[in-house]
Amino acid sequence: MGEVLVVTSGKGGVGKTTTTANIGTGLALAGKKVVLIDTDIGLRNLDVVMGLENRIVYDLVDVVEGSCRVKQALIKDKRYEGLFLLPAAQTRDKTAVKPEQMLKLCEELKDEFDLVLIDCPAGIEQGFKNAIAGANRAIVVTTPEVSAVRDADRIIGLLEANDLRNPKLLINRVRVDMVKRGDMMTIDDIIDILAIDLIGVVPDDEKIVVSTNKGEPAVTDSKSIAGQAYRNITKRILGEDVPILDLEADEGFLVKIKKMFGMKTT
């Protein structure tokens, strides 16, 4: 019996879709059978981030309306064994799917997959309700900005009100140079405010843009620091104990990361 993990944030543009694509691909690389569901109906993007946009035939709305079987709508990623995508519909809106239908779909997919990863749309309305309906675990993505942290706090409250206890925090796009100058909240500041457990920290990395350009998740790029962060997060999701990057130490961030990964620091 698999698990259903929702990736959510409240605020838009903090990296939910990038996170879903990278964690999903990371889990597949770790040998798990994974399906990614894009629930952002009308504004689908997980397909382009994954580089699978040309292979869509059926979508999520087709599945819940019974226009096709689930298996017909799943796109198999040929690059990574065990990775599948269920894309969102682009010409419909959030009301085309109901939470009960999502719950039923997740129950069905849980039998077949080790992990069902749900990419949640921004906001707290119908799309959010659909996305969390079948989930039993949650990751809240935020960036070190007041607007994103505020919305994350609201989402944490809503998740707990919907019996999704113990959501985990992912802090995205951390800029170490700004943290050092005192111009960006530290990891500890954010945990202090939100009072939930951390699943990982992803540093701001230009390679994310490059990998999104190509439709190849950064988690597969051994040279990308964000990719390494996502590999660590994948391990933590699977229950491994991997230390969180300490950004506040005196030595340089790069040095620290390199040390952590056993690379030469000179």
Partner: peptide
């Protein structure tokens, strides 16, 4: 104060009311 301290204080205040 550094701007991140200002951010933290403002957030803590606004969240009191949000919560």
């Amino acid at each position: 104060k550094s701007s991140k301290d200002v951010a933290k204080e403002r957030l803590q205040l606004v969240l009191i009311h949000d919560r």
